[in-house]
């Protein structure tokens, strides 16, 4: 079991000794059952940290934000506080940190990874919880071993099989504890007995081509282009995304001609073709980088199964190129490496 008090103590100690600038973690939200991200700057606030199955966010996203702020401070000729930032990380979150390290977005000494084990289970899918009677009114969800969650509604506690509430990403998770860490709370559980990795992708690609397109056309048509999938993703750190390419920063030197003839990869209209272009571009840009935290799918307000696009490519990376994103931050990245025996038969 993760000892949350020990975790709080560890975080407080880091801050107390001035070893880190801040601790990024989870605290209780003000609305509903889900925990929310928080950044603790002072030891006294470490008491508010929590760890439970409602800690959904991939906090590595905030390391990216922090890095950008540090860089911005530098350009304003301010010397940023160079101490590291600590982050509470689940298995998937730590893989995200590993990819950021691999891509030299961060340096290893810039981050202290406070690993937390998912207790052999994982986090909940809020939609699965809300679909249950009274699920919307739950005030707490706790781990109850690997096989169940304890859900508190009003004064009543109910044990619900983990499988019924677990997020899909967690059902297929291969490493529910952070391999990359500076300290680990809780035990590493390797035997999970849930779903096979890539189960959902394999099922999806069994359909005929026309059926697959019918499904995705339906989903692309529903996309609102709120860009929550992009905004929540720790790997989507481009300063400017191709779909926003009408907004290249203009300078006083930018001519009207240039503005008028700038390429527009993707229109703003939320139509099938434009949304398809966006989602497919994003998927391919995450190839070999997606660590399957499933946050894109979780935050999608209309519940587009975005994870499938990413896991499809991760499955290909794994099966064709024996590559796993976030496994080792020293490895060469998927798309900057090759082997003579890479698939060639599709080429004329």
């Amino acid at each position: 079991m993760v000892n949350v008090d020990a975790l709080r103590g560890y975080a407080a100690d880091l801050l107390e000794k001035g070893q880190v600038r801040a601790v990024i973690g989870y605290r209780r939200g003000t609305a509903g059952v889900l925990a929310q991200p928080c950044t603790i700057d002072e030891a006294g606030e470490a008491e508010t940290l929590v760890w439970d199955p409602t800690c959904l966010n991939n906090l590595a996203r905030y390391l990216v934000e922090d890095r950008q702020q540090q860089a911005a401070a530098q350009t304003r000729n301010k010397t940023p506080d160079g101490r590291p930032v600590a982050i509470v990380a689940k298995g998937c979150d730590s893989r995200a940190v590993a990819v950021l390290l691999q891509e030299n977005y961060l340096k290893r000494e810039d981050v202290v990874i406070i690993g937390v084990s998912c207790e052999g289970s994982g986090v909940i899918d809020p939609r699965k919880l809300a679909a249950r009677p009274e699920g919307r009114w739950a005030s707490r969800v706790d781990f109850a071993g690997a096989d169940a969650f304890k859900v508190t509604v009003g004064g009543d506690e109910t044990l619900i099989p983990a499988r019924d509430l677990l997020a899909d990403r967690c059902l297929e998770c291969r490493a529910a504890a952070p391999a990359l860490n500076d300290v680990l709370f809780g035990e590493v559980v390797t035997e999970r007995g849930l779903d096979e990795p890539f189960r959902a992708v394999k099922a999806a690609q069994g359909a005929t081509e026309d059926a697959r397109w019918a499904t995705w056309e339906h989903h692309f048509d529903r996309c609102l282009r709120c860009f929550a999938c992009r905004a929540v993703c720790p790997m989507c750190y481009c300063p400017e995304c191709v779909v926003d390419s009408t907004t290249f920063v203009n300078t006083p030197g930018t001519t009207a001609e240039e503005k008028a003839t700038r390429i527009r990869w993707c229109e703003r209209s939320a139509s099938v073709s434009e949304s398809a272009l966006y989602h497919l571009t994003r998927a391919i840009h995450l190839a070999g980088r997606c660590i399957d935290c499933g946050e894109c799918e979780r935050v999608c307000p209309v519940n587009i199964p975005l994870r499938l696009l990413n896991t499809k490519l991760e499955m290909e990376a794994f099966e064709q190129f024996q590559y796993e994103a976030g496994r080792d931050f020293g490895q060469a990245s998927l798309l900057s490496s090759f082997r003579d025996e890479d698939p060639n038969s599709f080429i004329r």
């Binding site: 928080c38 950044t39 996203r61 609102l224 709120c226 860009f227 929550a228 929540v232 935050v299 307000p301």
Partner: peptide, 20 residues
């Protein structure tokens, strides 16, 4: 501080009406 700058709150709002 932890806002990710997505469009969920506004696009789903019954009264948000900004456009481009």
């Amino acid at each position: 501080r932890h806002c990710i700058g997505c469009g969920i709150c506004t696009y789903l709002c019954p009264t948000c009406h900004c456009f481009d």
